[in-house]
Design a protein around this nucleic acid. Structure first.
Lengths: 261, 261
DNA sequence: CTCCTTAAGAGTCATGTTGACTATAAAGGT
DNA sequence: ACCTTTATAGTCAACATGACTCTTAAGGAG
């Protein structure tokens, strides 16, 4: 063991510092640095389908391919802050709006050759947005679009993997957390909430059973007092609810079969 | 948006590259680099208590404090490989043994000031080891020890947070995965498996109910044929089992109350 | 205006799972 | 022998779930 193997801390052993890795003063420029970026799997529901925010690459490598939005972590910000900043930039939403969105760190992708140009370590996030405004067409060449999940070709880099991991994570968290409300506007019907589960899981749920389960879970949703109904589509008007205090579901709301996707 | 905002990929915009972040050739030395490390929360069970592998820091900052083991990600390895390499170094286990251990990426900690010396982004892992050999006293000054979870003082850097996150993650995954067997040797009794749950969750579980649940879950454990019992302690000898094929538990084995820790 | 369609919401029923317990078996210790 | 400890076999009631049925309240077509 090393007297100053400072894991969460700064380096105590410089790569190539000699046999045994004797600690020496750390020189940040002594070896090729890592770039640290964030990648965002921004998910929303549109027309009963799961959509992802994608950007088209204008340059090599992967020119013409679609990719997840993302960017560099700046020297004085955390990965979370970088992710929220990028999210605001890409979606065109205000900083305050973005501050309220559900943003969840997925995992970090660090394979040495995931970017052919240099060593890039990327912290991936899943972001869940309710209504899905069209992304503002940034000032540059590439375009950004909401694409139905699965309809895009292969994504650039390892972004297919990241997106799949995001989908899996969100699907799993729907089972035992109140995360579904993150896809909904402030006030929503139980039908809309059920639509979240059905869309993400790719299954059909029994209406009455879903209703019973949700209402029986304390703090999942709370009824809105005012006008007890919502107009819009056909069928009987539905009561409105807000997200409740609870964050976890006990017992969970399990997916019909073993696993999906 | 940027024509080459290459998130999971290499930089397309260099910090400070000018208004609008016009893509230019990337110069890795143009700004202070990030160091990328791994931190390991190595957990095991000893004498019916959860133990953590800790190393004592010999240098400032946090000299004399205990810290999680860890180290640098080398230029040509992934964070996972770095974690496994460090795990082998710290525990003294062979590379092949370590290759079979459960290693799970927790999340990445990237607060700008988490290390006072420089910008360090750390990918944290939880490792679950069965028997807990004493860590080899490395060739250097600092010592490494198994410490009962919670008995150590405040850890260095943000390692208390990382360790708490590791505990929470492992506790949660016991509910809906077969992870508990990762704490057990190749052959184990149901009593030992129950001990894993009780120790990590800090609760007592009903013996017959636990047994019924585990045996009713297909693929969780499989009975060992040979000698149908194990010697050792007092009480009726228990049958031996191995870990089964299954990785997930449907339905889950929920903790008694809402949440713990 | 009437009928049809759609979705919300109330309620039923059989089944499966869980938590709480009781009882028996098989070891070691005194 | 007797007590303690742990494994293992059951029992039973409360609860949760999946599969349905039925009623209500809208919009749309004729």
């Amino acid at each position: 063991m090393n007297g100053d193997r400072v894991p969460g801390g700064g380096p105590g052993r410089r790569p190539g510092a000699g046999p045994g890795g004797v600690p020496e003063g750390y020189d940040p420029y002594a070896f090729e640095p890592f770039a640290v970026t964030v990648d965002l799997a921004v998910l929303t529901l549109r027309e009963e389908r799961l959509h992802v925010l994608l950007v088209e690459r204008g340059q090599e490598p992967y020119a013409g391919h679609w990719a997840l939005p993302g960017g560099f972590v700046l020297p004085r910000e955390s990965a979370e802050r970088a992710a929220r900043r990028e999210l605001a930039e890409e979606t065109g939403l205000s900083e305050t709006t973005v501050a309220g969105l559900h943003l969840e760190q997925l995992r970090t992708y660090s394979e040495p050759d995931r970017d052919p140009r240099m060593r890039v370590v990327s912290v991936a996030f899943a972001a869940l947005v309710p209504d899905a405004p069209e992304p503002r067409g940034g000032g540059d060449a590439a375009q950004a679009r909401w694409m139905p999940y699965g309809t895009h070709g292969p994504l650039a880099f390892d972004h297919d993997r990241i997106l799949a991991d995001a989908h899996e994570r969100v699907g799993a968290k729907l089972e035992y957390t109140c995360l579904a409300t993150a896809f909904c506007p402030p006030e929503f019907t139980l039908g809309e909430l059920r639509q979240v589960y059905e869309t993400v899981w790719g299954v059909e749920l029994d209406r009455p059973n879903f209703r019973r389960k949700v209402l029986a879970t304390p703090g999942f949703v709370q009824a809105v007092e005012g006008p007890p109904r919502l107009t819009g589509g056909r069928g009987k008007p539905a009561a409105l609810y807000r997200a409740g205090e609870a964050t976890t579901l006990h017992p969970p709301l399990l997916r019909p079969e073993g696993r999906s996707t």
